[in-house]
């Protein structure tokens, strides 16, 4: 069997901003890998430009941001803008982290985030959301 001809879902998992915890991001990355996806993991302290550029070069199907610093209301719109500039506006942008409900709503309504996950959400919900979006 020629497995090399198989299409794979590619996901960028990025940690923009200054907070120094990537445990959550790594747990998500592992869950996605175990679901058969290819996860491009870029490590801590990414600038919005670095996130957008990695999304472009890696041609990912989904961009996932992990933000615990509280700076989501500036980081997410900025990253969305930079993705748009690169003709990547159609790539689903997911945000995970400690995001208050009203912020989550605002990010979704402004079209910056396609979906916001908070610590209470099961990993499986992230996996299945990405699967559904990538069929």
């Amino acid at each position: 069997m020629d497995m090399s001809s198989k299409r794979k879902i590619r996901v960028l998992v990025a940690k923009p901003g200054l907070d120094g915890h990537d445990r959550g991001a790594k747990v998500v990355a592992r869950a996605l890998r175990d679901a058969g996806m290819e996860v491009i993991y870029t490590g801590l302290h990414q600038t919005p430009e670095q996130v957008a550029e990695a999304a472009l070069q890696e041609d990912v199907d989904v961009v996932g941001l992990s933000i615990l610093s509280g700076a989501h209301m500036t980081l997410v719109p900025r990253i969305k803008e930079l993705l748009n500039e690169r003709q990547l506006g159609a790539v689903p942008l997911l945000v995970g982290g400690i995001i208050p409900e009203e912020d989550a709503l605002a990010l979704k309504q402004s079209g910056c985030a396609d979906r916001v996950f908070t610590p209470g959400d099961p990993l499986e919900s992230i996996v299945s959301y990405i699967r559904d979006r990538c069929i």
Partner: peptide
């Protein structure tokens, strides 16, 4: 087993 992968080389190419 799963066909998935974590591709982490970019971490050190920033």
């Amino acid at each position: 087993f799963t066909g998935g992968a974590i591709l982490g080389d970019r971490i050190r190419m920033q």
